[in-house]
């Protein structure tokens, strides 16, 4: 049982898991593709109702946080613990910013009477209802993944502080980082599909 840790094996496991997450969202993207084909005009109309500035800021926030997570891994590899801690804190902060912006975005939509079963959507074009149905489902599920990613980063942060994650053994941090990149990657697809649909 005292074999050396098989880092490649751990990575294979993590990549397979990430793959399954992509398939999970893949099911929703299939729905998107079919419904976009069925109601192209409504999707364009729905896309124009979303706030591109908020969306763009959120994209930027996630991209930057992806960079800082990667930087924290490099820092750990070079045994610069303090750097790693600050980079991780910054990344988790970015996650918070993302969620806060999302909160205001959803709030604004609710104020405009655009939510499942709202009068506007029930009485309007069916395509618009599907567009917003998918919007809430996909961004909601994505938001949930952001929260899970933040929890993983937080655990990694604690382990870094406790010296459980070091230059010799950083699989936990690396895998959390991979998960965070996945969250980022999915958003990269969500952003153009909903905000830039025109």
């Amino acid at each position: 049982m005292d074999k050396p840790v098989d880092k490649t094996g751990i990575k294979i496991g993590m990549w397979i898991f990430l793959y399954s997450e992509i398939i999970l969202f893949g099911g929703l993207f299939v729905l998107y593709a079919v419904y976009f084909h069925m109601h192209p005009e409504s999707f364009v109309e729905g896309g124009l109702k979303l706030d591109r500035i908020f969306g763009a800021i959120n994209t930027l926030v996630l991209l930057v946080s992806s960079f800082t997570v990667a930087a924290s891994i490099t820092a750990i590899q070079r045994s610069k613990k303090m750097h790693a801690i600050w980079f991780l804190l910054f990344s988790i902060g970015c996650g918070c910013v993302f969620l806060i912006i999302k909160y205001f975005e959803w709030g604004a939509k609710f104020a405009k009477d655009l939510y499942p079963n709202s009068d506007t959507l029930l009485d309007g074009e069916p395509g618009l209802n599907v567009f917003f149905g998918l919007y809430y489902t996909i961004t909601g599920l994505h938001g949930l993944h952001v929260i899970i990613g933040m929890v993983l980063l937080l655990i990694s942060l604690i382990l870094v502080i406790k010296n459980k994650v070091t230059a010799e053994r950083y699989a936990m941090l690396e895998n959390s980082g991979l998960y965070w990149h996945l969250v980022d990657l999915i958003w990269i697809f969500v952003f153009p599909l909903f905000y830039l649909v025109l």
């Binding site: 299939v30 499942p116 029930l122 069916p126 599907v130 149905g133 809430y136 489902t137």
Partner: peptide, 20 residues
């Protein structure tokens, strides 16, 4: 939430459920 993703009245398609 009764979103209506598979409800034809609300723009959905029940056949897609079967596909998925």
């Amino acid at each position: 939430l009764n979103i209506g993703l598979f409800d034809p009245d609300k723009g959905g398609d029940p056949l897609l459920y079967q596909h998925l």
